[in-house]
Design a protein around this nucleic acid. Sequence first.
RNA 1: GCACAGGUGACCGAGUGGUUAAUGGUAGCAGACUGUAAAUCUGCCGCUCUUCGGAGCUACGGAGGUUCGAAUCCUCCCCUGUGCA
Length: 427
Amino acid sequence: MTLPFSIQAQAGAGRKARIDTAHGAVETPAFMPVGTAGTVKAVPQDVLEDLGSGNLGAQIILGNTYHLYLRPGHELVRNLGGLHKFMSWNRALLTDSGGFQVFSLSELRKVKEEGVSFRSHLDGTSHLFTPERSMEIQIALGADIVMAFDECTEHPAERERARASMEMTLRWAKRSKDYFEAHKHECPWTNRVIRSSGNRGIGKPNSNQQQLPLRGQPESHPLRKERAKDGAPVLHGLPTNPALFGIVQGGMYSDLRRESAERTVEMDFPGYAIGGLSVGESREKTMEMIAAALEILPKDKPRYVMGVGYPEEIVQYAAMGVDMMDCVLPTRAARHGLLFTSEGRINIKNARYAQDQGPPDPKCGCRVCGRYTRAYLRHLFVSAEPLAGVLNTIHNLAFYLDTMRSVRHAITLGDLSGMLSGSVSLT
RNA sequence: GCACAGGUGACCGAGUGGUUAAUGGUAGCAGACUGUAAAUCUGCCGCUCUUCGGAGCUACGGAGGUUCGAAUCCUCCCCUGUGCA
């Protein structure tokens, strides 16, 4: 078992589950904060660890292949013990493959069958990214979940263009998997893992385990039993290597999405992502594409929609059966002064908050809402104080994580309808 | 008192006869942000109307003057800075 995934409750198509990684549990549906360059921008790791109500914190965050390869360099990270150790993050990590940069750095790259040549946005130097190279880098970084190297198809794209792009992503997926399987043991934490002798604790957590506090800390993980002499965690019954996820593409064509899903599933990955969405299409189209892919993707494995979304969107996708999502929105928008609240979005720099003594979100229990006023946050933002971005980001991430926590709770109760109505109409 | 240098829209600061309601920047107001080239980017930013195409008014220390036309040239006055007495 490369990545234990246990479903605990369902409500319609939505499901509550748990992924057991070598670096702690991830309760799903999960929102994963984006930490592109080895940092969730503006938020210290210890704060990430107890973000949101219940202090559950972020159980998994993202890193990025392209950015960490350019700086500080994946070999350096490997030599320093891997990304977990380097950035002092002992929970789960997922690295994106650089596939999104194929899309977002369109001015600076050239796509060929072999791979993608990039000009560094930092110094202009040229670099070739191939599926093999992406795997090598992600393994060196030591992510718990590695993403296949894909091409995030631009929008709009003609059908033939979308098909050709999808076909290449499929070929790249195969190459990614071949290289990954041959080299996954080279990840920096593999040698810390003691292989389990049996299935103990895998797949179906027993009642005792479920009653343990799910803090997400590796130290309190129900499957964790001891530590090695050097203090490094010793893992039993947990993944001994990273897991590789395949990625569904197919542009905005449902049949291509289904075909992409079918052929990716044939390659047999421990989890599947749906990529190439929220690139300019309507929300209806996004949902249509997600639905098409979910028809095909196996229900007993994690399904991850990449790069989404607004709070009301991630609730909808979770209700459709999506288990994982990531998005820069809560972090980037926070640094730009946009706060997500239970009453909608507020732009904290607006003059009307200059004397507002209320918390950013009266219904939020985060450390920011519990301590600071809108007037103060506005002052910090207007003054360009670094703390503005820090506090705004902490709140937004807490809001996102709490949103997912509520979704999980609603699924446990078997009814997501309350979360869907009322949150859908945010503009 | 004398000699230089100056006084430009909330602020700083270009502009030295017309295409100038006046370059830039700051401040201010608002908007965007979806696997992060983003603590970034965009719009507005004298007043009053507008069918949103535009129309009218008021503006470059003050008052006069030259000119078809002046923030720009001349005269006087006021004020600021520096230097010398």
